[in-house]
Design a protein around this nucleic acid. Structure first.
Lengths: 152, 152
DNA sequence: AAAGATTGACTGTTCAATCTTT
DNA sequence: AAAGATTGAACAGTCAATCTTT
């Protein structure tokens, strides 16, 4: 009975499961990135995202969206990375309100040093998650995701 | 070429997608729960988890695991909720190191007041996520999750 | 000595207010 | 006036150290 509430319950359970898996992975990544490379997960994410911009630039707002952070948190995050000489800021020439960010060679180097640890621990976290059978549908979905729209 | 790296790339893309979806939902829930009920998402989660314990009790460590929080953050979280008279602490009688927590009637009442907003915004967030076709496999997986092992 | 919980010091995040450019 | 980015104040999180109980 109470069949009408089923969809609500299913969504809530799905969300709890998603949040649990996310927390499990994030905790594992946070630990290795912080101890080995003095990077938080969101800092690694920014380096990774910026490394993918070839020939174009992201503004602060776009970085904020890519990380699900507020714009003030993004300012401070970019400050930290700039202070460590991992990226540089440029004023956007055709709209001087906008700020472009770009990885330095040091930023690229740190990212590529951190990436193997990131990838290894990500695999570990997914493997241990697979021990909980109720996560199986979610884990299956993760590796059946579409390629992002190819740029060439 | 570089076929051996494919699995690594697939996992990394899956993780980015999962994190993006998680951030999208969490931001939406955070906003409504905070403005309407002065609750953060993790505070709501604790109330929800505690409301499911009927006849037994969770210790602090279990609350910490359920929320992917450190034990010190859990202590402070439970402090906040206790200060608001939403739950009570009991010393575990057979092992006086452990602390049990239990919702008060006020805690139950707030939870049930907040739940409709939570459920409505969760549905909204999932619906707008469905506009991004690359999230489809993940969203499908969410509502095909198994029932947790029934207790009766 | 180890397990469970808490406290202190520090870092990072948010909201609201501000400053600059359009 | 609105958009983009930054700053100040308050709050929430982590790690390391501590206290109590087993």
């Amino acid at each position: 009975m109470a069949r009408a509430d089923d969809a609500v319950e299913v969504r809530a359970r799905g969300w709890r499961t998603l949040a649990a898996l996310h927390g499990h992975i994030e905790t594992a990544l946070e630990k290795v990135l912080h101890t080995e490379h003095d990077l938080s997960v969101v800092e690694f994410t920014v380096l990774d995202v910026l490394s993918r911009q070839n020939g174009w630039y992201m503004r602060m707002q776009q970085v904020a969206r890519a990380t699900a952070l507020s714009s003030s948190a993004t300012t401070r995050l970019v400050n930290r990375l700039e202070d460590r000489r991992l990226l540089t800021r440029h004023i956007c020439p055709d709209d001087r309100r906008g700020i472009y960010t770009e990885l330095t060679p040091m930023g690229h180097a740190l990212l590529e040093r951190a990436r193997p640890d990131h990838d290894r621990v990500l695999k570990q976290a997914l493997d241990t998650a697979a021990d909980q059978p109720e996560l199986a549908p979610l884990l299956d979905a993760l590796h059946s995701l579409e390629q992002p729209p190819a740029s060439n």
